[in-house]
Every structure is written in C-alpha cells, then in structure tokens.
Nucleic acid binder design. Structure first.
Lengths: 123, 123
DNA sequence: ACTATTGTATTAAGCGCTTAATACAATAGT
DNA sequence: ACTATTGTATTAAGCGCTTAATACAATAGT
C-alpha cells in the first residue's frame, strides 16, 4: 500500500488516518494480522517508534488488538469498527461546534451555514 | 472588559477571538477608537507584541483600521463586518469538512451526522 | 534450550511556533 | 520645535511536541 506522508503535519497522525481508512474500507480485513511495527515502519519509511505511536492510538480506539509477542491484528468485531468510526466523527463534530461557538456562532446558525454552503457547492 | 486567557492555547489566538466577538456583538462599536497596543496589552496582562499580533490579523481581515501614529479604530463598514464574520465561518467549515474527508466521511454523510447529532442534543 | 522476532519504555535531540525584549520610525499635540 | 505617544521590525529565548536512538522484556518457533 502507498504511504502518503506530507511534512506539514505530524507523521503519526497521518499514519493513524491512513490505517484507519484501511480498516474502515476493508483493505485490512477484520481479524487479519498486521505486519510487525518494524515492518510497517520500514514500509512507510518511518521510525518504528512513530509507527508504534500510531498503532497505540488505534488500539486505544479498539480497532486493533495487540498480542504482546506475536504481533497485532485488526479487531474481529465489525460493530466495534462501526462504533469507532462513529465516535471519531462525533469527536470532530463536537470540536468543530466548539470552535464555532468561540467565534460566536450558535449550533443552529452553524447548521444553517453549513447546509447552504453545501448547497452552493453542488452547483 | 474581562480578558479570559487560558494557558492551553496560544494567547494571540484567544485575543483575536475575543476582540472579534466584541466587534461582532457591538461592544466595540463601528468606527470607535481602540486603545493603543500598549494599553490593550496592559489591560489584558500581555506583552505588547502579542497584542500587536492579534490586531495585525484583525486588520488583515478588514475589521480594524490602523492609522500609523494615531492608533487604530474599528471599521465603519457594517457590511465588511458581516462579510468577515461569514468568511471566517466558511473557513472553519471548509477545514472541518476537509478533516472529515480525511477520515473517510463524504460531505453528505457528514451533514447527516451533524444533523442527527444536533437533534439528539435537543432532547 | 536458544534465537529471532514481537512489542515497549526511556530518554534525548530537533524543530517550529509563541512570546518577549529591545530598538526604531513616524507624527499628533502642545 | 519638542516630546510623548503611536505602530512596527528584528531578534532571541522558551517551550512543547514530534521524532529518533537505544536498550529492554517477553515469547513463538525451531
């Protein structure tokens, strides 16, 4: 798989995003075994610790499971994946609404704005 | 006016937000004169350069006008304020949609999610 | 039993961004 | 004309976060 890493954001967050996508989209099938941190790191041309950091976050989110000395695998729980995806989305949304609030936009106004904005983009 | 500065985010961004709010809400009336950078800085218990940085951004956004040696004032153009407010909102929205896309959420799905989320919060 | 392969903990270097110190430039106001 | 007051430019210190180096711990696999 192609690792697309840009220098404008932390590497580890980009790794998280890309692995997440691969899990959500089924590129990494449920229950499948992941390459070792070192192998993944080499593949992505990245320090093993950096890859480790990304994997740790994914484990925390319940997307992957660590088997101490025999590597990691994707969770087998399809529902877990669905929930995690949903939770991550809600976190982003909450953070976004918070920012808008700081700027003086209440929830309702924000929703209207985003709706009309998407409407405009369709044209 | 009370300056509420927390150590978890850059000071200058917080200054920007708070001054913006004051302009949007009319606490700083259109065309009114602002205290000098130094005075504002002292009021907010902040280094003058930090306040300067915030004011520079607000000027760039067209919200305030600098008169070189006689201080600054709020723009007199009510429409400018309205447009700026709108533009800032759109920037936030675009950034948010971009993040969601990186996480594998298309615009339509994002909109649905945010709508149902707000619906739930009403209860 | 041994060795190669797992993941992990600790620590330090690097880097970019924010903040602050300082000096400068221009002019309003007297 | 002078001086206090404006904004501004430059530069360096500080700080937090990311990344990397290194050593360690556990065990699967032979």
């Amino acid at each position: 798989m192609p690792w697309d890493l840009k220098p404008d954001r932390p590497i580890y967050t980009q790794l998280i995003e890309q692995i997440q996508l691969n899990i959500f989209s089924g590129v990494y099938p449920l229950g499948s075994k992941l390459p070792s941190v070192r192998d993944l790191a080499q593949e992505a041309a990245v320090n093993p610790n950096t890859m480790q950091r990304a994997l740790a976050k994914l484990e925390e989110d319940g997307l992957i499971i660590t088997h101490r000395t025999s590597g990691r695998s994707i969770t087998e729980d399809a529902n877990m994946v669905k929930l995690a995806r949903n939770r991550l989305a809600k976190e982003q949304i909450a953070e976004f609404l918070e920012k808008m609030k700081l700027m003086g936009f209440e929830k309702q106004e924000t929703l209207t704005l985003i709706t009309t904005m998407l409407e405009e983009m369709k044209k």
